[in-house]
Design a protein around this nucleic acid. Sequence first.
DNA 1: CCGTATCCCAGGCGATACTG
DNA 2: CAGTATCGCCTGGGATACGG
Lengths: 122, 122
Amino acid sequence: MTHDVVYRADCPSRTILDQIADKWSMLVLAVLSEPRRFNEIKRRLEGITQRVLTQTLRRLERNGMITRRVLPGRPLGVEYSLTPLGRSLQGPFGELYNWTVENMDVIQSFQRAYDHRGEQST
Amino acid sequence: MTHDVVYRADCPSRTILDQIADKWSMLVLAVLSEPRRFNEIKRRLEGITQRVLTQTLRRLERNGMITRRVLPGRPLGVEYSLTPLGRSLQGPFGELYNWTVENMDVIQSFQRAYDHRGEQST
DNA sequence: CCGTATCCCAGGCGATACTG
DNA sequence: CAGTATCGCCTGGGATACGG
């Protein structure tokens, strides 16, 4: 039987999932399909704050998925780009992203149906 | 040029990503590869609380990915199972999960290297 | 057994100001 | 330009108790 699989808290894959399965990491990696500077990334991710973008970039860097390169000259410039490891995540993430795009209409109609229950009173 | 793609806050795919790109949804769907009861799921996801599991299940149900079925008889029993939509997510999620398993060693060594910088003092 | 309701706290995040 | 620092809110989630 394979029936007694348990996802333990200290399972490394769970630890790593916690790092990348958030709303921003995926989008940052998508934006970094080509190397970009800090504010370029920020501009493309509507709603992200400077603070959170910095945190996300640091985490991705720590996990070996992107590199940070300070550009010579003034004013200061920093360029972020994918490592091979980060690029290898584009496959899985792309699949997931495509899935959401393909299914968002269906999902939204499910949501409407669900929200409709319990309140067609009077 | 495809260079000016911007991920807008009201993009449906972003809204949906916010729903499924969290640390528990993926694992719940994995556990539901076959229909299971509430406490079965809970037991297999070490560390999840009743409250959070309930919330996760409700959200997945609202999004049309799982169904909730009350079993006849007492004591009360409830069985959760994947819908076709939920099952179609297993592909993308499986890819992502496999990726983390395949790469967790590399990532952990990156993390150690990163954490090592800046503190080999004295 | 499968929830909901309540209380309560830590910490995540936005806003803002400041630096190399 | 690309951050770090500080502050204050506010909500997510743990713990617990209770209900169908």
